[in-house]
Design a binder for these strands. Structure first.
Lengths: 249, 249
DNA sequence: GACCGCGAATATGTATACAATTTCCTCATT
DNA sequence: AATGAGGAAATTGTATACATATTCGCGGTC
């Protein structure tokens, strides 16, 4: 509960604080729904429908969709509307690579700023994670697991890195929805705990290593080797051109 | 604000651009104008004026402004309109920290993927930089200096990191516009060259070091110790609360 | 019965209209 | 002359209307 507590609270935009506009409400609702996997990848986000749901005009809906598109969790196809994004296997690999780069840097920043209050906040967060996990609330648990990394980024105290990681974590949620192995239970509740222990002991090298292993573990439990259905068609198409075009033309 | 017209339409509309919406054109023009420091921080971006300039309605202008706001080079103040962003000293420090983290990671990626073509592209780019520098075209040189880092990011092959760096480079341009020392000539033309040499020799450790030194050099030539005028008032206000509130109340 | 074209229905792209808020000028007051 | 209230002008926020593009279904044709 020291000065770090201040950094955990998002700073205002160097002006006066403002009431939330209705556009923000739509943005937040859709954002949360995607993060909690209530809106799976590919879901069509029709402007009229969203407008009716939230009681606003398409103008306001479009504003929210533009923001979501920029964060790459919604794709706006010209003249064809918005859908929840479907990251490709290649996207997924790049996102995990980016996360490793950003989050190791964040660990370094955290090591230089960590204090009692921050450690306590992290412990409380993992407690909430475990509670959700034990309660079988899978959506809430996935959400909290991502939030753990964002909490760490806030402790690191670098807003650009935090905001970027927020985008990467959101997209990771889409990736998990798309590529999770059916059988595998993604169960790494104690990895966050072990990571906090390394932080507490001031072992930065160990903390970095654990973070990298943690991210590798998440990636390894996904099914990124093959392709999803739609991509499969692309591959068939490519093979058609390579193998049989000459014989049929 | 007819001066906006002069800075934003230096060149005529190019030939038919199929697939690009008019909103993209506004976005690109404003983005380039900010990057080339033709639109300094704080410049008001009135929707009607921009709409008149580009011959579109405010609806289209707003779409572009929302995107620019998300990239943090434009600030939209509720009910008060959009202005070119003015990063604070704190923002500047955080942005340089983020750049060091991201760009060292990019150097590692580049080392694993570098080839003859990439080296040639980098050399050609520095040649263009030097040409602009010798020609005294300072705006173009600043623009190309930033683009060098983005070219490197593209070679690295990680889109999320590239897009994030694009945002950081754009904001760096605003930071330079705000905090450049009047006397100091920001002249590090050969640093990019030395960096390429390290890459060519396969010396990743040296390349990382040079990149860090390069970014530190840019930051060191800025005037980030004091505050700008507006910020000064904020500080006075803060000190008033810290020092004299008890004695006056 | 399958395929193609055409038109209606649907959805998005953009402009315009109106409401709400801020900004700025004017003028009275001290 | 400086200050503050009041109102007009300007600007942004949101909704609606119209134009354009896409999607879907129907009917005709082979």
């Amino acid at each position: 509960m020291t000065e770090l507590a201040d950094t955990l609270i998002p700073r205002p935009v160097r002006g006066r604080r403002q009431g939330t506009s209705p556009g923000d409400a739509i943005y937040n609702h859709v954002f949360n729904a995607i993060l909690e996997q209530r809106l799976p990848p590919g879901t069509k986000l029709t402007e009229d429908v969203l407008g009716d749901i939230f009681g606003v005009s398409r103008t306001t809906v479009r504003k929210a969709l533009i923001r979501l598109e920029h964060e790459k969790i919604v794709e706006i196809r010209p003249n064809r509307g918005a859908v929840v994004a479907s990251p490709s296997v290649e996207d997924a690999r790049e996102i995990f690579t980016a996360r490793k780069a950003v989050e190791t840097a964040i660990v370094d920043l955290v090591m230089a700023r960590i204090d009692e209050g921050a450690i306590e906040a992290l412990r409380q967060h993992t407690a909430a994670e475990n509670a959700a996990h034990r309660a079988g609330d899978r959506r809430r648990w996935i959400r909290l697991s991502g939030d753990f990394h964002l909490l760490l980024a806030r402790i690191g105290g670098n807003r650009p890195l935090h905001d970027f990681l927020k985008e990467l974590v959101s997209r990771t949620s889409l990736i998990i929805a798309l590529y999770e192995r059916p059988g595998k239970a993604t169960c790494q509740s104690d990895e966050h705990k072990a990571f906090i222990d390394a932080l507490t002991q001031g072992d930065g090298e160990q903390a970095r290593t654990l973070m990298l292993r943690h991210l590798d573990a998440i990636e390894a439990e996904l099914h990124l080797e093959g392709e999803e259905d739609a991509i499969d068609l692309h591959r068939v198409f490519a093979e058609y051109f390579n193998d049989t075009r000459n014989s049929t033309g």
